[in-house]
Design a protein around this nucleic acid. Sequence first.
DNA 1: CGCCTTTCTTGAACGTGTTCAACTATGTCG
DNA 2: CGACATAGTTGAACACGTTCAAGAAAGGCG
Lengths: 240, 240
Amino acid sequence: MTNVTTAAADPTEPGTPAPTRQARGEQTRQLILETALRLFRERGYAETTMRAIAKEAGVAVGNAYYYFDSKEHLIQGFYDRNQDEMRVASVRVLADEKEFAARLRGVMHVGIDVNGPYHSFAATFFKYAAEPSSPLSPFSSASSPARDASIAIFRDVLDGSTVKLDPELRKELPELLWLGWMGVILFWVYDKSPDQRRTRRLIDGAVPLIDRMVSLSRLRVLRPALRQILALIESVRRDD
Amino acid sequence: MTNVTTAAADPTEPGTPAPTRQARGEQTRQLILETALRLFRERGYAETTMRAIAKEAGVAVGNAYYYFDSKEHLIQGFYDRNQDEMRVASVRVLADEKEFAARLRGVMHVGIDVNGPYHSFAATFFKYAAEPSSPLSPFSSASSPARDASIAIFRDVLDGSTVKLDPELRKELPELLWLGWMGVILFWVYDKSPDQRRTRRLIDGAVPLIDRMVSLSRLRVLRPALRQILALIESVRRDD
DNA sequence: CGCCTTTCTTGAACGTGTTCAACTATGTCG
DNA sequence: CGACATAGTTGAACACGTTCAAGAAAGGCG
């Protein structure tokens, strides 16, 4: 992309089917986002400057800020894309398997598969997601659609399985599994082992334990303990 | 971890205890650190510029960089100070109490007490600690002295108590408790309830559960499950 | 067509964290 | 003492993310 052209002064040709005004804007938006994500992948997040993104996309730097509030906001595009990829891949896994443990394990491995290629990239921008005030935080209200979608996957893991468990626990479990998944992601971000094998081992080791505990939730002897745990969750969730 | 260490080329002093040059440098270092932490508290981290710190301390901006590699590194001072404050306050709590659950609960509440005044400040710089490559990360090798000191507190919580538990678990528990404490801190950072009451409730609710599980670790029936958990930990810890 | 509004685009300018070559102060040694 | 080395200090300069006043392009409307 030789950048000698006067990008702005280029009049639209009278013969071409003119795109609508909105479509043109959306086109620029996509161009900037694609360029940014490509450069992030090629050079890393910190090493990619807004000037470089603008230059590579053939627009002015201010134009990027017309579509994205900040450099951080460009990450959201990556975020959404991966989220969706995990959802799609999960469907395939869940279609073939009816046992709870296998379903849970499958979904988690799929999640790591999907994110794997971006491990080093994810580690660098993880700090932005960690800031409580950031809209990128998985706990932020801005992320609540993505969060709900993710929890829905785990609800599907549970509801599509043959496992029997305490009804009270069943209500809470999808969110708890999502929370556990966030823990796995946290571990994964810090995992420096080749191909993040330790994270795989964590999943393979933790899933049977979770499966066991979920099954035991129906035992009458453990009822008081379960109640205590559920009460703790309820108490902590309370927002005062 | 008071780092009064001298430079590399350390000439053996001929007997005169007058390290005026070093003392002067250390004095400047402290001046910059104190000024920085004060401004962080007064204005917030992001709102405090390096220029403001330098000006307020009466030095050139480059001088701050002679003593601290970056603005982030100034946070380490805060970090160390609070760590030490928690350690000291823990000693008082642990002197009065012999029961495991009460000791654990006491130490955790002390930790929240100590950090309480800096909650909003902590939330803003938390992102720097979250970045895996950052020396501020609790899992980084640079933090290993602080980490070891923190784990030592939990070892004291355990060893000074009357609780009986499986010997294998006893070996691992201090580190596990520290990990749990990191989880509590994570929760606390995101806790927006007044005075972080939800974090208090989390501690009060989780400690009895931990206490119960620790005590049950001696039961022969649960031996296989315990082994499984310990094997998981061992497997995940393995660094390949 | 001419005029207006809205959408889109521009690039200079600002404040920031950080670097660095130059300089000063201080102690060391012949 | 005088030269030298080391520790400490300076502030201009750099690259960066971000802002903003100004303007261009596109469509609507008489």
